[in-house]
């Protein structure tokens, strides 16, 4: 594992893996969509239930991205490894993107179901807060000028956020019970039928691999960018 913490070895491994990951992503997302579009309409939600296959995996991936970012931050902070710093930095915009995708599809899904583009439902609200956590992290990275210091500051923020995230999640759930007017139909949970399970599973795996492929690509770019900068500095 630690052998691949060397940037050169990481580049070689990442380049070898990426075509396979990309291929698997396309296959999984294709299969997931094909299956997902053919599921029978839900008795309550009708055809809109199919949006679940785009929404729920996006939300999962956004959460997973934060977890990976926090894990990379911890490694960067404890072992002072630049590759981990880059990995954390590279995960943030992707996490923000998947969070935004989750919010967007959630809003589209909510329109026919709740009759409004935005409802302060527990899941959407906590994802809005997650989006702000990502944006704060990205802003901090960009604001601190010295790169090593930016990496450490951002890592501390990611860890504080990771500790606080479950509390935020809990408080938002608590809040929805406090203000409940209409009872909200929640996706997921035990009432999900088997026909929906397979496409959901395929899509979730597809989203995950999509994230991993893009993540690896961003880390590669960051490494190459650093090298280019060193070459330019030495050449100039």
């Amino acid at each position: 594992m630690l052998r691949y913490a060397n940037p050169t070895k990481f580049l070689a491994l990442s380049r070898a893996l990426r075509p396979w990951l990309a291929g698997a992503t396309v296959l999984l997302l294709g299969a997931g969509l094909a299956l997902g579009l053919r599921v029978p309409p839900d008795y309550q939600q009708g055809e809109t239930v199919k949006l679940m296959f785009l929404h729920v995996p996006a939300a999962w991936t956004a959460m997973m991205a934060y977890g990976l970012m926090a894990a990379a931050s911890l490694v960067g902070l404890v072992w002072r490894h630049p590759l981990a710093d880059q990995a954390a930095k590279a995960a943030a915009p992707l996490g923000a993107l998947f969070t935004a995708l989750g919010l967007l599809t959630g809003s589209l899904w909510g329109r026919p179901m709740w009759g409004a583009w935005w409802v302060w439902d527990g899941r959407l609200t906590s994802f809005l807060l997650l989006l702000f956590l990502y944006l704060g992290y990205i802003a901090l990275w960009n604001a601190v000028e010295d790169e090593t210091r930016a990496a450490r500051a951002a890592a501390i923020l990611a860890l504080v956020g990771a500790v606080n995230l479950p509390v935020i999640e809990f408080s938002v759930q608590w809040w929805t019970t406090l203000h409940q007017g209409e009872s909200i139909v929640r996706a997921g949970g035990p009432l999900i039928a088997g026909v929906y399970l397979w496409p959901l599973f395929l899509m979730a795996l597809g989203y995950t691999l999509l994230f991993v492929s893009l993540w690896l690509m961003r880390i590669e770019t960051a490494i190459l960018e650093r090298r280019a900068r060193t070459v330019m500095l030495e050449g100039g």
């Binding site: 807060l129 997650l130 956590l133 704060g136 802003a139 504080v160 606080n164 935020i168 809990f170």
Partner: peptide, 10 residues
Amino acid sequence: PLIVLPLLAP
């Protein structure tokens, strides 16, 4: 504020 506000939601 961007950093701190989401943490203060609870």
